[in-house]
Each structure stands twice: as C-alpha cells, then as structure tokens.
Design a protein around this nucleic acid. Structure first.
Lengths: 218, 218
DNA sequence: TGAATGTTGAATGTCGACAATATAATATCG
DNA sequence: CGATATTATATTGTCGACATTCAACATTCA
C-alpha cells in the first residue's frame, strides 16, 4: 500500500515522452493541438524543465513541432509529409532487405516466421493494435540486421511517425487478412535469397501500405 | 562602444551549439572528451539549462554522446562509425542525384557550376576549409532539390559528422586538385541526364571520399 | 593481502521563479 | 468606423539552487 520511492533508471523526461506519445496515439492529444508547457507540467506533476526535455525528444521524432518563442504543437501530417515518410521508408527498407538477403540465417527466418504466425492469430481476431506492433517488429528486425546504428535510429523515429498516422485509421482499416498476407509474401521473398525478387516485393509492400496512408490524408 | 542589449531571434542554446561545434572542429574539444555541464555553463556564461539544451542539439547530430546520469562526451568515430556514415550518405545521395537528374533546370546547373568554379580557385590556393564548405554546398544543393524535408534534415546532421571527421585530416589531406576534379566529373555526369551514369559517378565519388576517411580511422 | 562495504565528493536530474517575448485586447487617431 | 498604436496578459526562454545518483576512495573483515 505504501507508495515506495521509485528508483528510475531512465530520466523522468523519457518517461514523460513515452506517455505523451501514447496520448497522441490515443487521440487524447490531437494533431495540430498546441502543447502548453505549464499545463503539461501541472498535469504530469513535474517541472517545466522536464516537460521541455520530453518535448525535445518528441521533436526529434517529428511528432511535435516547436517554433522559437511561439510554442510547440502536435505535428500534422499533410500529404506532402506522408509522401516524405514513405520515400524515406522505401529508401531505408529496400536497402535493409537487400542487405538482409545476404546475412540472414536459419534463426532469423525462424524469428520472422514466428512473427507472421502471431500476425495470423491477431488478424483473425481483428486486433489492429497488436497487428501493428507485430508489423513494426517484423520490419524493425530486418532493419536491425543491417547493423547500421544510425539507420536504425532513423528508422525507429520513422516508425513512430508511421504508427502515429496509421493509428488514425484503425477503425477504417479492415483488411486484416491482406495485411497478414503481405508479410507472408515478403518473408517468402526473403527465402528465395534472390535480391531482385526481394527488392520488388519490398517496393510492392510499401506501395500497399502507401495506399492505406493516402486514404487518410486525401 | 556601449554593450547594447542583443535581440536574439534564435534561442541562446542554438548559438551555444554552434560554438561548441566549432570548438570540436578546431580541436579545442577533443574526440571522447568529457563535457561537464557546470564547466561549460561557466565558460559560456549561461545557465546549465541552456548548456543542456545545446548538448541535446549536438546529440541529435551524433556529435556528442550522453549516457543517463553518467555524462556527455564528444563522440569518437570508430571505423564502424565511419562505415555507417558512408553507407547512409551513399543511400541518401544516390537517391538525391537520381532524383535531381529529372528535375534540374538551367539555373540549377549554373549554381553548381558556380560552386565548382570557386572550388577551382580555392583548390589552387590550397584552402582546405573553404574547399570543404563548397563541397558541402554542392552536395547539399543537390539533396535539397529532392524536396524531402526529412531527408534534408538527416543529411544536414550527416554533413556535420562528415565535416567533423574530415577536419581531422586537414593537414594530411593534400590532393586539392583531385578533390576539385571529382566534383567537375560529378557535374558532368548530371549534365548527361543519364540516370545510369549519374548513379555510377555518385558511387565512385563517395568511394573517393571513403578512401580519405579510412586513412584516418585506420 | 584482497574483496566487500561504507563514505565522500562531484556531476547530472529536477525544480520553481524571474525575464524576455509574442499574442490578445484595448485605446487612439485619421 | 477602420486601421494603427499601446497596453495587458500569457507563454516561452533562462536562471540558480536543491535532490539524487554515480564513481572513486577509504575502511573493515576474512
């Protein structure tokens, strides 16, 4: 019962950043909404300095935009933004998948197979949230195989953005099955170990996601 | 004579970040050196909060590394790091140059020609600093043509890192002429408007820079 | 002697307050 | 009455101090 002193490994600001991210995903904070440091400080019961540092973290992820002496706002994603995100994703993933073809071993394939198996289950239960987590896990795993920490960092931020945009269409988005199929197809491509095929499948997959994207922005 | 109140458009932290960056480039701060917030605050005559925000900016550029409750250090660039930087640069630039082929117009070519002309002058005077500025300008210009603000942001950070590493070999680096020739060749490639040729020349150019890079790290 | 454990000093994390600036609301003038 | 100038308020930028944590050293005991 007693509220024990919590020992923090992470700075408080990072925890706040996580919470803010969730609030955006849950639409407790809306796109374009202004974020008042004072207000947030009171709400989370921390100082403004801590809030400021948390906002910087979100700014790196481009989830919020702040202008000097004007304030910080939850990002809005225009069609232009979405096009940019997709282009960047395409660049990183096509490189990563081609890279992966050369380096993937048995255990890597097992890992991806396990993920798609889970996807199948969640797709049947139409659990969009879990499905999306698995999608992120799938793609992250492949990107991580590249071993380039800078690219991985960029990709992580990018995924946060993608998730933010896609969370917007959870209720509209219904093709759970085809979402699963897409990943099975992608995995099958990797198994061929044929660079050309993989490249093609990755681009096709991203175009598939792109369609979903644009149905929101448009 | 009177020290007038300076009106700042930018936050102080950004100005501090610029100065810190220069200090690193000028080797007033060495790779791996620990940065004490208190010390820097006193040195720049600002508060620790301001220093902290400046360090976050440099952290995004991967010019410093900070570990929670441990401290922040000027980055060190291992061979692995340099390989990562080169890979990322290659990915971004090859895309950007191919993109540019389709969109470049007369004035863009004039701009690049003006830059290479200046490079020739500076190469003759063996002014490595200026030469490098022009190199950054040349490549930035092409990347900016892509119009993808996210990629541009990433590229800007990347260039800071590249510059940081290359500044290390100013005295060792002597092939000014070939550095200039490289860019002329690159520009000639663009003029052909042949995607295949451009791709090849970009990769060749980056390999050229890579050699210089690795001579430091190794 | 050496490993484990306290102790101390220094540096980061966090805080609340003040200063500078932008937005708004109001007043003034043509 | 509309447009501009002025004041007022709200919000970000900056500051210095306190709290917490880490690393190095000293101390104790096997």
């Amino acid at each position: 019962m007693c509220e024990q002193q919590v020992i923090l490994q992470q700075p408080l600001s990072e925890l706040i950043a996580v919470q803010l991210r969730k609030k955006i995903w849950n639409k407790e904070l809306l796109f374009g909404e202004r974020l008042l440091e004072t207000e947030l400080a009171e709400q989370f019961d921390v100082s403004r300095s801590t809030i400021r540092e948390a906002l910087r973290i979100l700014e790196i992820e481009e989830l919020v935009v702040s202008k000097a002496r004007k304030g910080t706002y939850v990002a809005t994603f225009s069609e232009q933004d979405i096009a940019e995100i997709i282009e960047l994703r395409m660049i990183i993933e096509s490189r990563a998948f081609v890279h992966a073809v050369r380096s993937m071993e048995a255990e890597d394939f097992q890992k991806l197979e396990r993920i798609t198996d889970e996807m199948k289950k969640e797709a049947e239960q139409q659990n969009w949230n879990k499905l999306f987590d698995l999608d992120m896990e799938f793609h992250s795993y492949v990107v991580h195989l590249s071993g380039n920490s800078r690219i991985i960092k960029i990709y992580n931020s990018l995924q946060v953005q993608i998730r933010t945009v896609l969370m917007d269409l959870d209720q509209y988005y219904s093709s759970f099955q085809s979402f699963y199929d897409e990943h099975v197809d992608l995995l099958a491509g990797l198994k061929t170990k044929d660079v050309h095929i993989v490249k093609e499948k990755v681009n096709k997959h991203i175009e598939f996601v792109e369609e979903k994207f644009l149905s929101v922005a448009g």
